[in-house]
Structure formats: structure tokens, C-alpha cells
Amino acid sequence: MKALFAKPWIWSFVAAVSVWLATIGVTGGASTVGLSQAALTFAAFSVLVGIGQMFVITLGPGNIDLSVPATMALAGTVALKYMDGQNGLVLHGLIIAIFIGGGVGTLNYALIKALRIPPIIATLSMSFVVQSAAIWTNRGLRIKPPQVLADFTTSTSLGIPNIALVALLMSAVAWVLLHRTPYGRWIMAIGQSLPAARMAGIAVDGNRFVTYLFCAILAAICGYLLACFSGGAALNMGSEYLLMSIAVVVIGGTAVAGGDSNVPGIWGASLFMFLVVSMLNTYGVGAGVRLIMTGVIIITVILLASGRKDAIR
């Protein structure tokens, strides 16, 4: 029990469960299943982009991928446009989305490496270009996703939303990558000290490149699924995931300074962020108060997290 409470990610789950209880307490348990399924679905999208962002943040201070929303928009738009509502092209669409993610990730790291600019600025410049490409291909079109995909993303298996199952699978892969492969050790080492990692003979450039690639591909997959889930790609569909992807990583107990990450916390934080919004909605609070509460919660969490670090010392 004590070991469990020492985990950095446990608090995001404690928070998520208490908000969940507070919400169904008000509704009298009437919408428990609906609320839980909705929470799992929407959390799954945050988890997908959050995992990618987490790997990038692991690399150390200054490493953040700001091109996530633009990548989501471009991948969603192009994939839907190619599939054009035909069920037979579902896999092709997914492969296109992954290629777009791969392209953006490669260019991101090419900029970081070739121009030696901080990752924030490199991914920011890249996101401007990618966003423009998305606007250019989208042209206000709203193409319906193939029926198979629309059904898949909006339905459940054994009571659990399919999207959540996909995110769970990706989380498992991410956990294995982070904790059970040399790659995970390497990026943690890079995040803790880049010069030390380099001296220890770790291929710093290769590992950083793979990480940015991974993050962009996850964002692209998320964009593909989100476009199908919401019945069409929209240019602004990724915009809320820029701040969300950073917030869930931090609230989930991953060190912002890098070098110390965990996967489960992203789930707790994503569920928490969605449940807070639905709790405040249930209480009939307006949009303004809801935003303020979200901000206050993020700041409180980071204050508490810093206090915990002091206690350990």
C-alpha cells in the first residue's frame, strides 16, 4: 500500500476517481455507464497525444512538440480526403496518416539538428507550415469518414469504447518501450543529462530523432481517429490538444525537467481532465468558470507535486 502511494502517478487516479464519485453523487448514479464511457473515449484521445508528448518531454528541458495540433489536422484531413467515405480504403488511410506523421516528425528533427534551434521553436515553425498545408488541402470541405471507421470509433466492445482499447494498446506498447527496452533507458538517460548520456556512448541523435518521429506519428494516428469519431476533419480539431497534451503529462506525475516519466499517470490525468469538465457541467457551471477551475487545478497540481519532491529530499 505504501509502495503504491509512493508512485508519482497514483494522485492523478485518486483525483479522477474522486471527481467521478462527486459527479455521479449529484446525478444519483443515473448516468454512471454513459459518463464512464464518455470519459474513457475522450480521455483516449488525450492519452494518444499525451504519450507522444511524454516521450518528447522525457528528453529533457526545452523538449516540447508544439506541432501536435497541426499534425492532427493535416493527417485527419488528408486521410479522410483519400478514403472519400469508401470502406475498402480504411487501411490505406491509416498508412497515409502514419506517413504524414513520419514526415512531420522527420522534418521537426531535421530542423532541430540542422539549424540547432531549440525544439520549441523548431516544432513551432513546423506547425505553422503544417497548419497551412492542412488549410490548403481542407478548403472547408467536410468529407464523411468511411462507415466502418465511423462505427468502429463510436461503438464499444464489452462495454469499453473501442477508442479506449486502441489507446490502452498503445499505452502498453509505450510502457514496454519506456521500461523494458534499452531505448527507454537511453531517452531517460538523455533527459537526465545529455552530456553524460553522450559520454556513455548512447546514440543521442538517433534516439532523439526516433522520439520526435514517434510523437508525430501518434499525433497523426490520433488525428485520423478523431476525424472519424467526430464525423469529419476540422482544421481546428487539434487546437485544444496542444495544451492538453502537455497538461496530462505533467499532471500524470512525469517530471517536466525530463528524465523521469511514467505511462499510467497519463491515463489518470486524461480521465481527470475530462471528468472535471463534465462534473462542472453537471453542476450547471458556465464555460468561463469551467476554464478558470481547469487552470486553478493545473496550478494546484504542480504546486502539490513540487511540495512532494521537497518531502522526498
Binding site: I64, L243, I246, A247, V250, V256, A287, G288, V289, R290, L291, I292, M293, T294, G295, V296, I297, I298, I299, I302
Partner: peptide, 14 residues
């Protein structure tokens, strides 16, 4: 980055 991220929600809400 995280504190101002939180504040961005607060200012937006206000």
C-alpha cells in the same frame, strides 16, 4: 511553462 499553461485557462475563463 506549466504554471503559465494553467494561467492561460484562468485568463481565458475570466
Amino acid at each position: 511553462i506549466v504554471v503559465t499553461l494553467g494561467m492561460s485557462f484562468v485568463w481565458g475563463g475570466l
